[in-house]
């Protein structure tokens, strides 16, 4: 099997991992067949803002994908796990058995860190792209491509609401955004280690992807999610500026978001974007 097919396979597996329902998190689904039909691959770093219908349509759909039964799952499905980092335990809690929490995003992070260790740039790039596409789908309440074949023909869901989904239970947009941005910032932290050679390229790709994501959120008026996104992005940007990485694309994005927020009647987010832009390199 040549490298191209391996990469493709990896992306398909990763995509399946992201679309995995909670009940199946512990076992990865089998590999897809290699006979596939190619659709234009949707890259988030292209200048165009991804339209919801482009996100909803599978960009490289296989029959095997269609066999995955459920759409994307709510996050943090298992609240029972006792985490000493976030709670003060009671004796009863310590004595009771708790189920270890392990959701698809943890698995996805593991996968991404693994390809970073192996220095597989294309896989890392595709993985981040898939992750962010999955984020947009979860946030906008779109079904993952190929999960419900019947839904592709159903009327498009309404996007102009505040993230309420017609298909799946709507996650808290702030929490959801923070979760995905945590993954990105962990990846960014790792990429500053001297063992990872593609730091500059990865940061450039991050900037490009975050631009698309930010503009999409602004277009769909997801203001609270956008506030979390730009705060987390600016935290990464400050670190990047300290490391001497270029922040011009980020400045440009914040400037555009500022005007988008002003025209979208969200002046406090515009003010936040402006503050972040001014303090990006202090």
């Amino acid at each position: 099997m040549n490298e191209f097919v391996c990469l493709r396979q990896w992306i398909l597996n990763f995509r399946r991992l992201l679309a995995m329902p909670a009940s199946e998190e512990k076992s990865l689904p089998p590999c897809a067949s290699s006979t596939v039909q190619l659709y234009p691959y949707c890259l988030l770093d292209k200048p165009a803002v991804p339209l919801p219908d482009r996100l909803a349509v599978a960009d490289s759909k296989t029959e095997a994908d269609a066999s995955i039964p459920e759409p994307s799952v709510p996050l943090l499905a298992d609240h029972a796990y006792l985490d000493l980092g976030s709670t003060l335990p009671t004796v009863e809690q310590l004595c009771s058995a708790d189920e270890p929490r392990c959701d698809r995003l943890d698995l996805a992070l593991d996968q991404l860190l693994e390809v970073m260790v192996q220095q597989r740039w294309s896989r890392l790039r595709a993985g981040i792209n898939e992750l962010l596409k999955d984020y947009l789908r979860s946030l906008l309440g779109l079904s993952a491509p190929g999960t419900f074949p019947g839904l592709a023909h159903s009327p498009a869901p309404s996007y102009s609401n505040t993230g309420e989904s017609t298909h799946c239970p709507a996650p808290d947009p702030d929490e959801l955004t923070r979760r995905y941005m945590d993954i990105l910032s962990l990846i960014f932290e790792y990429c500053q280690s001297s063992r990872f050679p593609y730091r500059d390229s990865l940061w450039g790709y991050f900037s490009d992807c975050l631009r698309s994501v930010g503009l999409t959120l602004a277009e769909h008026r997801q203001w609270s999610a956008l506030a979390v996104l730009i705060t987390e992005t600016a935290a990464m940007g400050r670190q990047a500026a300290r490391e001497g990485l270029p922040t011009a694309p980020l400045q440009h994005l914040l400037r555009r978001l500022e005007s988008a927020c002003l025209s979208g009647n969200a002046p406090e987010i515009a003010q936040l974007a402006k503050n972040l832009r001014f303090t990006l390199e202090v």
């Binding site: 990047a240 001497g244 390199e281």
Partner: peptide, 12 residues
């Protein structure tokens, strides 16, 4: 002389 680095912050 470090042309490719982002030096806006250090310069200010």
């Amino acid at each position: 002389y470090f042309e490719n680095k982002n030096l806006t912050g250090p310069m200010a």
